[in-house]
């Protein structure tokens, strides 16, 4: 995993694990404090949060002169989405994944879809106005397409 990916993951873990019970999201400062062990600069965390917002993983709302950030979907919803892709139930007909074997039943598919609906839409359309941040994409093979899948 790249360092950037690892940071994104750490920030998302904070948003997921610290915010239950709070619906208003976290300020950048709060995220920085929660990651105190890593000694990250404020601007680094801000960049990571912006990057995550660009990918549609994080929602932000303006509060005064600052932004509040919260996860766009729960961890479980993301896992459900990945499993739908993995079990070829995502409705995509592209050869995006190669599977060992499909082992899924109608009920399982329903459970997965229900998990998605219950935890909110996991793929909100990325804001087209979101500027492409200066951090280069981690993967050289893929163009910087910030559109949601399908």
């Amino acid at each position: 995993m790249t360092r950037l990916g690892e940071l994104e993951r750490a920030v998302m873990d904070v948003l997921w694990d610290l915010s239950p019970g709070r619906t208003d999201g976290l300020m950048v400062r709060e995220v920085v404090d929660a990651l105190a062990g890593r000694e990250l600069a404020y601007t680094t965390v801000l960049t990571v949060l912006d990057r995550l917002a660009g990918k549609g993983m994080v929602r932000r709302e303006r509060e005064g002169r600052a932004w509040r950030y919260q996860a766009a979907a729960s961890r479980e919803a993301h896992i459900a989405q990945l499993m739908l892709d993995a079990l070829d139930l995502g409705g995509s007909r592209d050869a995006a994944l190669v599977r060992f074997a499909r082992s899924v039943t109608g009920t399982e598919a329903e459970v997965l879809r229900a998990a998605l609906i219950a935890s909110g839409e996991p793929n909100p359309p990325a804001d087209p106005a979101t500027p492409v941040d200066p951090v280069s994409p981690a993967d050289p093979a893929t163009p910087a397409a910030k559109t949601p899948k399908h």
Partner: peptide, 21 residues
């Protein structure tokens, strides 16, 4: 077009994996 949408789906999938796997 198929290649393009596959690459896009893979990118999205990879991003999500980074966060939750």
């Amino acid at each position: 077009r198929s290649l393009h949408s596959a690459v896009r789906a893979q990118r999205r999938h990879r991003d999500l994996l980074t966060l939750v796997a």
